[in-house]
Simulated scan of single mutants.
Amino acid sequence: MQQPQVVELNMQKIAKQNIWLSVILVIAFTIVYKIMYGQTNFSFLSILMIAILYIILIVLHEAFHLIGFMIFGRAKYKELNYGVNLKLGVAYATTVKPLPNRAMKKALLLPFWTTGVCPTFLGFYIESIAFVIVGALLIAGAIGDFVMYKELRKFPKDALIKDDPELPKLYVY
């Protein structure tokens, strides 16, 4: 078997991009919300709700990666792993099964839509600044997934992608 090509995230760079994108999106979405509804409805309750929703949606973000591995990559439940890497300060979802590139790219972006875009639209629809803010934070939080996606676009759609079980890196065969 030939040596794999390695796609690895620079976590310090990703963290800086995440912070900047979070700030930009929260400000932009708050301005749009203010224009649409004339107020932002910030209160202690909305701040508490943002904190609770953020934790729930981070967990769901990783769960949607697992769902993507099963739906798009046909991974079995026993081939999945999920947890928190305290050393890196990140939650993770992984599979021991190598996935075709096209399946891995879909699994990478599924959480962006389900835990970022959908809550943002829901927040605007139901006039909830908490959902809008949390959606903005989860959209920004998908920056690492987009970086991986961008790198995987360089490889054929049928290339096999093996997820590293401990580090933010992929092996391409």
Rank of each mutant, 00 (worst) to 15 (best):
C118A: 15
K13I: 12
F29H: 07
P4C: 13
V117I: 15
L48Q: 08
M148D: 02
V147L: 07
L122E: 01
V147T: 13
L137N: 03
Q12R: 14
P98Y: 12
P168A: 11
I143Y: 13
M104L: 14
M70N: 03
E62G: 06
L60W: 02
I71W: 10
M70W: 01
H65N: 08
E8N: 07
I67K: 09
L109P: 00
L138P: 00
K169T: 06
A103I: 07
W113S: 14
K106W: 08
S128H: 02
A159N: 04
K34G: 04
D158M: 10
F121L: 15
E62H: 08
R102C: 04
K154Q: 14
I161K: 04
K154V: 09
T30R: 03
R74N: 13
L60Q: 05
K97T: 09
L66I: 04
S43I: 10
P100W: 03
F121R: 05
I35P: 00
I19Y: 11
T40P: 00
E127F: 03
I56E: 02
F42R: 08
E127V: 10
V134W: 03
L45R: 12
G135N: 05
V32C: 11
M70D: 03
A28H: 00
G83R: 09
M1C: 08
P156R: 13
T94A: 15
I126K: 09
I139V: 13
F121G: 15
G135V: 05
A51H: 01
L53S: 03
K76H: 12
N81Y: 09
Q2Y: 07
A103S: 15
D145H: 02
K97V: 09
Y37L: 11
